[in-house]
């Protein structure tokens, strides 16, 4: 029951907004509620199913429409602009956007990696960085990921072992010995690393060996026989 309530709450949060947008959304609902009440309209219950985007926009337009002074209208506009800007993280890092050419190259590389892995062992588990893993999963339905990449802010929902694997591959030095220790039931494991910025640790000690290189990705395979 608790899980169902949590799921409902999560779904509603996705719908109505999270973080800094949530207070803005609630204030918008109050404004709309009061304005519609003043007008004697009978459609108030529908307010609570408006999405965050429409509720905020409608509240602003309704609110400024009821203000006669230009000065106050300008003030309300500036306040809303500030809230919209604050709703984002204000971070546009250099690698935030990836161009179509790079994406296409990555798609091709991922398809080649998947084909290479599946030709070796179709049932083996695959591990890669959280940035690459979704591409691999989307490139071939036969790939078995060793952990599920969490959505932003939902990292805490990962299981203990999944969390360890996720954190290990967030690092520039993913610990392959740790991977072997956690996935000890897997007979074969393929680890894919970006050789431009990742240097895996304990490759030989954990029984991994380099299988192939595709573009700037190295494919390591657990060959067995490594000590844990």
């Amino acid at each position: 029951m608790r899980e169902i309530i949590a799921l409902l709450f999560d779904t509603y949060s996705d719908f109505s907004g999270r973080g800094k947008l949530l207070p803005l959304f609630l204030v918008s609902l109050i404004i709309l509620f009061l304005v519609m009440k003043k007008e004697g309209s009978r459609i108030r219950p529908l307010l609570f199913v408006l999405s965050v985007w429409t509720a905020i926009s409608a509240a602003f337009v309704t609110f400024t429409g009821s203000i006669k002074s230009r000065k106050y209208r300008l003030g309300a506009g500036l306040f809303l602009a500030a809230m919209i800007v604050l709703s984002g993280s204000l971070i546009w890092s250099r690698g935030f956007l990836v161009s179509a050419g790079e994406i296409q190259q990555q798609e091709e590389d991922c398809r080649t990696i998947c084909d290479r892995i599946l030709s070796e062992d179709p049932a083996a588990g695959v591990i890669a960085s959280p940035g690459l893993m979704p591409y691999l999963c989307a490139s071939s339905a036969s790939i078995t990921p060793l952990y599920e990449v969490p959505y932003p802010g939902k990292e805490d929902e990962l299981g203990e072992e999944d969390h360890l694997l996720y954190e290990a591959f967030l690092s520039q030095h993913p610990d392959l010995q740790l991977v072997r220790r956690i996935c000890r039931e897997e007979s074969r494991i393929f680890a894919v690393t970006d050789n431009e910025w990742m240097w895996p640790e304990h490759v030989v000690e954990s029984g991994f060996s380099l299988l192939d290189t595709v573009g700037h990705y190295d494919i390591y395979v657990y060959a067995g026989g490594g000590h844990e």
Binding site: S93, L97, V98, A100, I103, C137
Partner: peptide, 16 residues
Amino acid sequence: FTAGQTAGLQILKNAT
């Protein structure tokens, strides 16, 4: 262009 955030792509596994 695609944003660096790629977690959503996992959903495409079913489409694939």
